[in-house]
Design a protein around this nucleic acid. Structure first.
Lengths: 337, 337
DNA sequence: AGTTCTCTTGCACACATGTGCAATGAACAA
DNA sequence: TTGTTCATTGCACATGTGTGCAAGAGAACT
């Protein structure tokens, strides 16, 4: 009682003592394919059960791979982020990895701090979902044999492995959708967060419209939230000639925009305005919205990320793009030609 | 190249060699309050910087506390769950803990497996947000000196520390809200998932109504989702005398229910039906819904959970309840007496 | 019986860290 | 100069694993 101190976790040695065998025997009992006789194995298992022994994976991680994967993410409550984290944690667990989540601000300094923590815990790999880590830090991770996987960060950093949805393709398709619906006064609703993904969606859409001889009003009312979409709607319809076809670079923005159009300006969707989103979050499918959008294939993306972990770390920084899947619902008119 | 194998992480010994000091000096440099001269400290820091050294927290965790906290959770994409995980990861990080997320099915067997993994990684504590671990396993955790904190699991398990929102209070208030609004034909919309929280909300509401001489129709159309709320609405209004006051035990159910009422039966809210939810998820505040509900004080709950970690593990299983905060919006009529 | 072969087991080391203890050396007072 | 104090530093051990190596035991075969 006096001397026991604060070391309550039962170790392999205690099990060995109780079972009357060597510590090696205990270790081998819990190692697949190691050589132990059936008799000692039973003795060890009995002792372990009685004492409540569990192999210490931290100590095991000292010698070999830690099997730890870090997820660096911001804005966890956003549906699309939550969806991705959900898929990843699930699949990582299935691959018998352990997931450490670092919930950071999305500014680059915080991400850098998070990445350093990653190194402290000897993670085999880090998956970055938000922000952009500085190149020098990525290099440090790689030098320490740690994989760095960036998801939907268009920044093409040397040595890191990249994957993401094909924003350009989605934006192009979005334009064609609105064009086919006969929209003439186009607008893009985006956010003040100038991440590469959002910028690309905006740019490609505007470019496609320009090629077709149409002008586009771009609105950025705030961060990438429902509230910003709402505010964008107010701004766009507050002027004399509101748009009749709108591409919202994110579903959240789209839902806010739709509410502004309908509740505050009495407009009908899709009769008066057509709206296209991006991401395919669950809420877009709700009866109040029925938003036509492009889905990020989250399951496939998570699968691929986990596959990358198994492969021998390819050095040339690669980049895999996933096609966004069109989801047809009711926020765009049927072809009117 | 041939012999280097796969051990790229730089250790304290390498730093020591490069700096021309002992390994202890390196260790002390990175330990607060240890005795190192300014000269060697500088040498060590220089070498560490050049080599990209980071202290191995896993090895450090072998001797003392691992500073790892496990979060066992299911249905991560649900807004309320995502919100709680977001708060917890943030606050744990601020308390310089590391968060491991175990995304499990909510059935008890999966939770048990998750809890065992928790022991393998020598987590200082486990926070359970979903499912109910078997009592025997909790005992094992406690015996190993690991704290077990259950959030919103009404199951009062010996030795575990419990906290959650006061469901009874919220349900009672919900009834009074509807009563004051003059509703006479009451209904409860709940799910087939018979978790203690949801059952209590249902029971207390029904009991309060019965005391006031009112009968309540209880509908459970499926799991705790938007779709189930939608289906519940169809069932309730498909009969001759639909309800005029409904308590949905979850905001998600409420939103689905509202959509059914409005889109499929042309009812107005709150003129024809009053709706009260529970949880206060972000979507309930959107313009299409403006749901009156009771908020779970997630921030305060997360604060308290983190505080529990600091305290010396009190053995008598305690239980702290948080008052749900009423959020007045537009889905309930103003008092009509 | 003697030889060979296979299976099992214990010792010792490696992994990366923190720290008690003793030794070293410098600064300072007498 | 000598004795004392104090900061600094290195050695060695502890933490809990996995595994190579050699030794031992028993079985099978000549």
């Amino acid at each position: 009682m006096t001397d026991l101190q604060r070391r309550p976790f039962v170790s392999a040695r205690m099990v060995a003592e109780r079972a009357g065998v060597s510590r090696s025997a205990v270790s081998r009992t819990f190692t697949d394919g190691a050589s132990v006789s059936e008799a000692t194995r039973r003795k060890v298992l009995a002792a372990a059960g009685a004492l409540g022994y569990h192999v210490n994976h931290l100590a095991r991680g000292l010698r070999e791979n830690s099997n730890i994967v870090c997820l660096v993410v911001a804005d966890l409550t956003t549906p699309i982020r939550a969806g991705l984290v959900d898929e990843l944690t699930r699949k990582l667990q299935a691959a018998s990895k352990i997931t450490m989540v670092i919930n950071t601000e999305s500014d680059d300094e915080s991400v850098a701090t998070a990445l350093r923590q990653t190194l402290n815990y000897r993670a085999d790999a880090t998956i970055v979902l938000s922000g952009t880590p500085p190149a020098s830090l990525i290099e440090t991770c790689l030098a320490n044999g740690q994989q760095v996987i960036l998801i939907n960060r268009a920044d093409h950093l040397q040595g890191s492995q990249n994957l993401g949805v094909d924003n350009a393709m989605g934006a192009r398709e979005a334009f064609f959708l609105l064009q086919r619906a006969g929209c003439r006064r186009l607008a893009v609703v985006t956010s003040t967060a100038r991440t590469a993904s959002l910028l690309q969606r905006e740019d490609v859409f505007v470019e496609a419209a320009r090629k077709a001889g149409l002008d586009v009003a771009v609105t950025r009312a705030g961060p990438t939230t429902y509230a910003s979409g709402l505010e964008a709607g107010r701004r766009l319809f507050g002027r004399s000639d509101g748009p009749d076809g709108v591409f919202c670079v994110t579903d959240l923005l789209a839902l806010g925009f739709m509410d502004a159009a309908r509740q505050e300006f009495g407009l009908r969707i899709p009769d008066d305005v057509c709206v296209v989103g991006f991401d395919d979050i669950e809420q877009g499918g709700w009866e109040s919205y029925r938003l036509t959008t492009f889905a990020q294939p989250l399951a496939a993306m998570a699968d691929h990320a986990v596959d990358l972990l198994a492969e021998p770390h390819a050095w040339g920084s690669e980049r895999k793009l996933f096609e966004p899947l069109p989801v047809w619902r009711r926020s765009v008119r049927a072809n009117s030609r």
